[in-house]
Simulated assay, not measured.
Amino acid sequence: MAEARKRRRDAVANKERILTAAQEAFRTQGLSVDMRAVAASAGVGVGTLYRHFPTRDDLLQAITGADLTDLAATRLPAQGSAIEALREFFTGTLNQVVGNKAVIDLLAAGAPSDAELERCLEHLRTVGREALERSATDHTLAPDVTADDLAYQLLGLVRIAQLIPEHEPDMIDHHVTLALRGLAT
C-alpha cells in the first residue's frame, strides 16, 4: 500500500513537472514545441509524458485551456463610444495574449478545433454585437460592419501580434488604430 502511494505521489510530481515545462515551452516557442524537448525539460522520459497526456492536443489543452477561458471572459468596456470600447478591448486582449505564443498560434491558425477555442470565437462575436448595439446610438462604426467583421479583425490583429518583434510593443497600439480606422464611420 505504501509503495502504491509513493508511486502515485511520483506520478503527480511528474505530471506537475511536465505541465510546468510544457507551459514555458509553448508560451515561448508556440505550437512548434517538440514533445521530446518538453519531456527532457521536465526530467521525465517521453513515455511518462505520453502516459499523462496521450496526445499533443491533450497537453496543449491542459496548458492553454485556462488562457482561452480567460479570453472568453473578457468584456467590452462599459464606458465610451463603440469604437473607443473596441480600442480598449482589442488592445487589452492583444496585450493579454502577446506573451503566450501558443495561444497566439491557436487563435491565428484558422478554424477552431476544440470547444474552448470555439467558445472564445463565439465570445468575440458577442462582443462585436454589443459594440454594434452601442454604435446604433453613437454611430462610430460604419453601417456595414458586422459582428463577424469585428471578431475577424481581432483575429487578424492576433496574427499581426504573432509577427511583431518583442522589442516593438507600441506596434500593437498602432495596428489596433489602423484596424479601427477601417471600421469607423
Rank of each mutant, 00 (worst) to 15 (best):
G45S: 14
T48I: 10
L49N: 01
P54Y: 09
P54A: 09
T55K: 06
T55R: 09
T55S: 15
R56E: 10
D57N: 11
D57M: 10
D58H: 15
L59E: 01
Q61W: 04
A62T: 04
I63H: 03
T64C: 14
G65L: 02
D67F: 03
D67V: 02
L68R: 08
T69S: 12
D70L: 11
D70N: 12
D70W: 08
L71C: 11
L71V: 05
A72E: 07
A73T: 12
A73N: 11
T74P: 00
P77Y: 04
Q79P: 00
G80W: 07
G80P: 07
S81R: 12
A82W: 01
A82I: 03
I83V: 15
L86W: 04
R87M: 00
F89A: 08
F90I: 05
G92R: 06
L94N: 07
N95S: 08
N95H: 13
N95Q: 13
V97I: 15
V98Q: 12
N100L: 07
N100G: 08
K101P: 00
K101G: 02
A102I: 08
A102V: 06
I104K: 03
D105A: 12
A108H: 04
G110Q: 08
A111P: 01
A111C: 02
A111H: 11
P112E: 13
S113C: 04
E116Y: 11
E116D: 15
L117V: 13
C120I: 00
C120M: 14
H123M: 08
L124F: 15
T126L: 13
V127Q: 05
G128Y: 07
G128H: 05
R129M: 14
L132I: 15
R134D: 13
R134S: 11
S135H: 05
T137K: 14
D138R: 10
D138C: 08
T140A: 08
L141D: 07
A142Y: 12
A142L: 13
P143K: 08
D144G: 04
D148W: 05
D148F: 03
L150R: 02
